[in-house]
Design a protein around this nucleic acid. Structure first.
Lengths: 155, 155
DNA sequence: TTCTATGCAAACGATTTGCAGGGAG
DNA sequence: CTCCCTGCAAATCGTTTGCATAGAA
């Protein structure tokens, strides 16, 4: 869980900016805004949602800048993105690695323990030499609620 | 190989058409072409690639029709599609269920045994009531070859 | 005939890019 | 001052949709 609470509140943003500078990047209001939004949210924001939230902090920031900023942050390694089944990818600050699952029916996203795919990852590595990135793609399926309310009378 | 096989070779196509008819669907040249392309390929074709291949068999078939046909076939249950990380979704005739993994670097797709996620699926079901659809999303990561060439100028 | 499937083109949502100016270092 | 970052708008990519019509049953 490691829900830091307040102690390390700004450190995530600060740390991200530091890494950015380390690579020759620059600290701009747009980037600070994006990082702030990411930190403020508990997670799972699409680039578009981030852009909207950023508009509130920095009305001048353009959507394209948000995309570019996210790209840079991913490159630096402080942000991670996950591809959902149908819609847009979701971004979040890298904290503890976790896996996402999404319900195909209601679209809800659920965080899962990273260990869930540890075994599979191990098999992939030993049998295929494939290095699995567990958090990069969501596991798709049907959540409990939707599974119950539907498919009662299939076909 | 590409010589439109007779005998049992067409059973997959025939079976699909039967199911289609069972639901009130119609057998058209466009659908036959799409199914033929799917059957002829060993798998992993994007809708766009299928459209291109179909043009050869039926030049008149429009891209949109391919999309609609694929949609119908997925609905009927004879075709399955998998969302890859970045690009388009890939389609294939349903044979044995398998999982896809894709290398983020070279884009190569590798089929994996369906059992790979069996354990994870079981956990998801018992702990979250989540019914996993193992073949609907690809596992992303880095393949052996790329992993080797990757660790060059890292950090 | 009846109703589904198709062709065509335009709409669409998500993301990217070329270019010229602005600001960080 | 120099070079990275940004705003803007247009371009791309993948996919969907409204309509009128061709075609399967």
């Amino acid at each position: 869980m490691t829900t830091d609470g307040q102690s390390t509140n700004e450190s995530a943003v600060q740390g991200a900016l530091s890494k950015l500078k380390a690579v020759g990047g620059r600290v701009t209001s747009a980037r600070i805004a994006v990082l702030s939004v990411l930190e403020a949210s508990s997670g799972h924001l699409s680039a578009d949602a981030i852009a909207t939230a950023v508009q509130v902090l920095q009305p001048a920031v353009h959507r394209a800048t948000v995309y570019r900023t996210l790209e840079s942050l991913v490159e630096v390694g402080v942000v991670s993105h996950t591809h959902l089944g149908h819609g847009a990818a979701v971004y979040h600050l890298i904290a503890e690695e976790h896996i996402h699952s999404q319900c195909q029916r209601c679209g809800r996203i659920v965080d899962l323990d990273a260990g869930l795919l540890a075994a599979a990852g191990r098999v992939l590595l030993s049998e295929h030499g494939f290095v699995l990135d567990p958090s990069h793609s969501a596991l798709l399926g049907t959540c409990a609620a939707c599974a119950a309310t539907a498919t009662v009378t299939a076909t």
